[in-house]
Amino acid sequence: MDKRLINWFRFASPQAFYPLAGRMIPWFWALSAVFGIAGLYVGFLVAPTDAQQGEGYRIIFLHVPASWMSMFIYLVMAFWAGLGLAFNFRLSGMMATALAPTGALFAFLSLWTGALWGKPMWGTWWVWDARLTSELILLFLYVGFIALQSAIDDPRRADKAGAILALVGVVNIPIIYFSVKWWNTLHQGSSVSLTKSPSMAMTMLIGMLLCALACWMYAIAVALMRVRTIMLERERHTEWVREELGAKAKEQ
């Protein structure tokens, strides 16, 4: 038990984590490619055409995983941020910083693909549905987090300030979601419901899950790549970074 604990904490140091991340990245890329190809194969070739929505529904194979990831990454980001705030790990703040752009990208993708789906299905690019609105607000929260971190020059302060913002955001997300939901039911403008969708065929579900796994692996791979860059940038005065960069320069 003791030994394992020590091992875990060892990887909280950037110097120990840097090579580990480097070894993991190709694996996550490979897994992402495998799951992605399988998911798209199931999505485009195996899954049947939807009775009501035709071929257009196939965008859910990107849309749904992107929405899931955008929400999940915010939670993971807040988790790392909280860990960094509580234990003062340098790596935690870097992980939160590295995850934010990927989360924002997924939130944007989810909105964009949702609009593409909404135009043929609902006849409009955008409705003020509770889910759409809260996804948009989630994107705003990501943008706020990224803007705050990039405005503060001192990385330690940027990490901590971002951590507080992420935690405040996590507490607020359910409140925002329910307020928007209630607001939406009060304004019965467009009577479109996402929740009434008919139960999904098994193949569609499998395709979607495979795509979600692909997005997951992609997010991990990209976040690890980004965190490696952040580590080198922030620790550039240390011995190990000089050695690392020196070794690379020699190879070339």
């Binding site: 706020g144 803007a147 307020s179 928007v180």
Partner: peptide
């Protein structure tokens, strides 16, 4: 920056 951070959090109050 302040408005970027705070305005999304104001949404429930506005609603």
């Amino acid at each position: 920056l302040l408005s970027l951070l705070v305005l999304p959090l104001y949404i429930p109050v506005l609603v």
